[in-house]
């Protein structure tokens, strides 16, 4: 292997002295993570892909990939399309709610909280993540049920009670609550680096606060917004517990459908794998779009 032209002379003498090939260093450093990724991510994903090509395979049967029948099944039947749309709806809605609620909070922590308190406030915000998600969902049942905490509070104020539990709003509430900390953390990281001089310049040049927010703050934090939305969307797409416990009788999502294929009555692992691959595909597509258009808009700055 020839050494690249940019290598400085001192570096090349060092590597000559040690007598190790140049490719060894990155190989040794990246190797463990690479092996980990290969064994735990790439190979399992390939196995799932292989399973998705076997129509109706159950545990104990021989795997003989034979076609795309499992994928056709997803689109042939209205039920499954409905499930796909509902999952996307829950994930997108949650992303929007998290962004709307998370941005002000992240802005507040990054720009207005005194530096010495910042970490404490952040930790306080992330703390709920340490409890089990199952526990959090059960807590929301207690809060949202017809005679629960929320409705007792509302009726004590003379307001009408809300019947939200076992309906889609409850799912949005539960999922947003679970995923908000991720959004805030990522937005915080990007808003912390906000260049205040640009805001001051905008104000000097006569922009009102709203204009400077849309024209200066938002474009600067766009990569953070995109990353936060993506993370929330992906996690939301795979959420299993909130739709199951809070969503009521019509809350079948992709994640639950996959669960039912693997652990339910039919144990149709082939169809379950095809559904999993669809989610992987949707997520990959979202990331690809982000890489393509996310970069362009930040380059416009």
């Amino acid at each position: 292997m020839s050494s690249p032209a940019s290598t400085s002379p001192s570096e090349s003498t060092v590597s000559k002295d040690l007598a190790t090939p140049r490719w060894l260093e990155p190989f040794a450093l990246l190797g463990p993570a690479g092996i980990w990724l290969g064994l735990m991510l790439v190979i399992p994903a390939l196995l799932i892909f292989e399973l998705s090509l076997v129509p109706g395979i159950r545990p104990g049967e021989v795997v003989n990939p034979s076609g795309l029948e499992n994928y056709f099944q997803i689109f042939r039947e209205d039920v499954y399309r409905q499930v796909v749309w509902r999952s996307l709806g829950f994930a997108l809605g949650t992303t929007a709610i998290c962004l709307a609620l998370g941005f002000p909070v992240a802005y507040f922590i990054a720009q207005m909280v005194p530096k010495k308190w910042r970490n404490l406030v952040l930790v306080g915000f992330v703390l709920p993540l340490w409890t089990s998600s199952l526990l959090r969902s059960y807590a929301w049942i207690t809060i949202l049920r017809p005679t629960g905490v929320l409705n007792s509070f509302l009726t004590s104020l003379g307001l009408p009670a809300l019947d939200i539990l076992n309906r889609p709003p409850a799912v949005f509430i539960g999922m947003s609550y679970s995923l908000l900390p991720y959004m805030v953390l990522i937005l915080y990281a990007s808003l912390e680096k906000l260049d205040r001089r640009l805001l001051e310049a905008a104000a000097d040049l006569g922009a009102n606060p709203l204009q400077s927010f849309w024209k200066v703050t938002v474009p600067q934090s766009l990569p953070g917004i995109a990353a936060g939305c993506l993370l929330v969307f992906i996690t939301g797409l795979g959420d299993f517990i909130d739709p199951e416990l809070l969503g009521g009788a019509s809350s079948m999502t992709m994640a639950r459908l996959i669960y039912n294929q693997f652990l339910g009555v039919t144990r149709n692992w082939g169809f379950g794998s095809a559904l999993s691959m669809m989610i992987v595909l949707a997520v990959s597509l979202a990331i690809a779009l982000l890489l393509k258009y996310g970069d362009r808009s930040s380059a416009n700055l």
């Binding site: 039920v79 019509s250 039912n260 009555v265």
Partner: peptide
């Protein structure tokens, strides 16, 4: 049964 179940819980 699985199909009816999915229908029942998704529509």
């Amino acid at each position: 049964i699985e199909k009816y179940w999915t229908k029942l819980t998704s529509s």
